[in-house]
Design a protein around this nucleic acid. Structure first.
Lengths: 263, 263
DNA sequence: CCGCTTCATTGCGCAAGAGCAAAGAGCGTC
DNA sequence: GACGCTCTTTGCTCTTGCGCAATGAAGCGG
């Protein structure tokens, strides 16, 4: 999963954690051109296996990467904020992030999660001038970005790209629908179970102890995903731990018996 | 709103109502080719003002309509069902419909509503082979449909079409997000208020008494939209009626003071 | 090493709203 | 005109899970 190992394994970032002083941090992150960073590394690595590039040859892939900017974001900082002018679109290379919307009252709701290989900030796909949500790093992350003006060019030049974006949008719509259904029909416990399972799919990592969710995840994160309070989440996880279904520590959840979770 | 008046005003359908014997009805509806129906009528009417056609000239519009099939659907029947092969995409001309998903347990959740002028069944926009939800007529409806194979052709030939579909998708995503946020953070009463207001935007019709929702809407419908029970909805509407905010009868809601609803 | 901050756990009381039940109203049909 | 169906209202009970508060644990910084 952390194929870009010489850039640091993100489990390391995790171990060091980050002072989550505020959940509202504007991005003040390093930006480096691809050449500085060494695009050879990305080419050699299996970046071309990542989704939108799938049906491109090496030459095309290189062209796309040449045009990209690398962006590195610390935990709880943002790639962009709700309402910002949508100047770029992104491809997540490493790390995880949550797409968050905030209400006037200040409640945060996690609308979806993005895993490596997925695109985000694709306002262009919606004919939107601004981002409609905030992209916040759950763990330290690495993303490629392109100026939005290139969007239409990519669509024209790279036939696979259009398909990939459509599929991405489709997946999201379904994911959001599922979430909606879960919220509408299920009790808190089942909603939490659902959320955990979905994260497991996206970011599951086998360990000797069970499947771990491969980025730091607090009770509050889960509560924001499921529309409940961190207290309820805590109670729920405690109960599951008593029953041996999961092992949960600080910012970390390992699921031992995914099947036994109350679907 | 009912600009196709010589085809019957849908307030008439409403008045006659329909025996909602079952919510699970497969579409057994009339299909007629455009010529049978009289495409001149559609051209003369301001169909070209409906969204996806906006930036087309008369000639292009005619071409599109020539390729279309007309579909008429009775209340509580479906245009298509979740899981069906996505053979067509649609443009709603008249009437209203709800996009519904059903859980294994049989709970229905209304994911969104479609108003005249909106496209639906656009699985193609998601690179999906099947429909991911059921499109169920709320009131008797009239829609144009095209075979999915034409999708890419339309995108290529009619530049405005691509934009329109993107915008449609964007609007939906936002709408679903709003719903998600509402469900996650608000109490039942506010959720119901939100749902009503959204419907008002889409299907509001001025009357001497206030703004009416222009299609039959039961307490159960509202509960399926907001993830509560019809009982709670009933209580809520009763209370609002006592306070003079709304007037609600059987299958009908009129809002007198939209501003006063608990946002 | 100590103190501070963030994150997690747990107990208790309370209110929102779901579930259940029964009755009534509107409308179509026979 | 009577019956039946769907939709609605309303009362009561009981559960869920939120709010509040206090305690504890882990990790970071000085």
């Amino acid at each position: 999963m952390s194929w870009l190992s010489r850039e640091g394994n993100h489990t390391v970032f995790w171990a060091h954690g980050a002072t989550r002083s505020s959940r509202k941090g504007t991005a003040m992150n390093r930006r480096e051109t691809m050449s500085q960073f060494g695009k050879e590394a990305l080419l050699q690595a299996n970046i071309s296996e990542l989704l939108p590039f799938a049906s491109l040859d090496e030459d095309q892939t290189r062209k796309m990467i040449d045009l990209a900017t690398v962006q590195r974001v610390k935990p709880n900082k943002t790639y962009f904020d709700e309402g910002d002018r949508a100047e770029n679109f992104f491809l997540l290379i490493d790390g995880f992030l949550r797409i968050v919307r905030t209400t006037k009252e200040g409640d945060q709701v996690v609308v979806l999660h993005i895993a490596p290989g997925q695109m985000f900030g694709i306002a262009k796909a919606f004919e939107s001038v601004n981002y409609t949500a905030t992209a916040q790093a759950a763990s330290e992350g690495l993303a490629l970005s392109w100026p939005s003006e290139l969007w239409d060019k990519f669509i024209q030049d790279y036939p696979g790209f259009q398909k990939a974006t459509r599929r991405a949008v489709g997946t999201r719509v379904i994911e959001m629908q599922d979430k909606l259904i879960s919220m509408a029909t299920h009790q808190v416990e089942r909603r939490i179970a659902h959320a955990i399972l979905r994260l497991l799919e996206q970011a599951g990592k086998e360990t000797e102890d069970g499947v771990a969710i491969d980025f730091p995840l607090t009770r509050q994160d889960i509560s924001e995903m499921t529309g409940t309070t961190l207290h309820s989440v805590s109670r729920c996880l405690s109960k599951w731990q008593r029953d041996g279904l999961v092992r949960s520590e600080r910012r970390r959840v390992v699921v031992r018996q995914p099947e036994s979770l109350p679907v």
